[in-house]
Write a protein that binds this DNA or RNA. Structure first.
Lengths: 140, 140
DNA sequence: GTATATACTTGTATCATACAATTAAATTCC
DNA sequence: GGAATTTAATTGTATGATACAAGTATATAC
């Protein structure tokens, strides 16, 4: 790929990481970190910490703490695996779904306001490229 | 903007933030956090912590610690402002420039490998949209 | 039935960050 | 010109997200 484009992506990616961090720091009903966890449980169904850790690219100890915290808040419930006394499934609860949807909506509202002068085409394009980029990162 | 596009951007942005975090955790000569600081000093010249904090969207206390750490490593030097006894300029040193460039190159190499099957056009497009997105975030 | 592997949790450490308190210098306002 | 206020920066303290290592309990293999 063209060097200039690479350099742009490289720098802007660093800038973005910083900006996203400061941007999301104020919608704090939900632990920011738990968003993807709940999303995962909601979109691909219950699973145990090992699978979650894999999907989320996190250490299992981190996920274990996240699930414990989510359980404590009533957003997920911990179901023992009948086939294996060591393992559990975490299942998102109705309250968890509600929280997830509210948090998502808050993010969407904010984003919509930010991007209010972007064209449909730019938005679609950006969304697709971001998705592709993530896919590329995920697979390697 | 089209709702579906917004939703894609919203979700993929969260995924990206996570992926970028795990991706960059292994090129650790330079504190990951210091990269943008050195970049800023190198591209827009010396300045004090307040201005840096503004440009980097960080608290001045955070920047103060970052500059102290960079100074300790010899990547920046701290020059008293002759006009104001309270303030300083931080200036990037030759060593700092060298480190910055090495770190940047490592990131570029990694990115190049990741994106080796992307077309020039996609890359350019993505770079431009990322830049525009960051600009949008930066300004609000 | 002992040894090993596996699923998960808990202990400990680190990093990046923010907010609050502090210090020291500059500015303002009688 | 000196007291009150503002400003630039640092330092104290706390937190959140993370990883790695050690521990616990259960399952599997030989």
């Amino acid at each position: 790929m063209n060097m200039h484009a690479l350099e742009t992506i490289e720098l802007e990616m660093a800038v973005l990481a910083r900006l996203v961090k400061s941007m999301t720091s104020d919608l704090r009903n939900l632990d920011k970190s738990a968003y993807l966890l709940l999303h995962q449980l909601s979109s691909e169904g219950s699973s145990g910490v090992k699978i979650l850790a894999n999907k989320l690219h996190l250490d299992i100890s981190t996920v274990s703490r996240q699930t414990a915290s989510m359980e404590q808040k009533g957003y997920v419930c911990k179901v023992p695996d009948p086939k294996d006394g060591r393992s559990y499934f975490y299942q998102i609860t109705d309250l968890g779904l509600k929280e997830l949807s509210q948090y998502k909506q808050a993010r969407l509202d904010k984003l919509e306001e930010l991007l209010n002068d972007w064209s449909d085409e730019e938005g679609q394009n950006f969304g697709q490229l971001l998705k592709k980029f993530n896919q590329t990162l995920m697979d390697k």
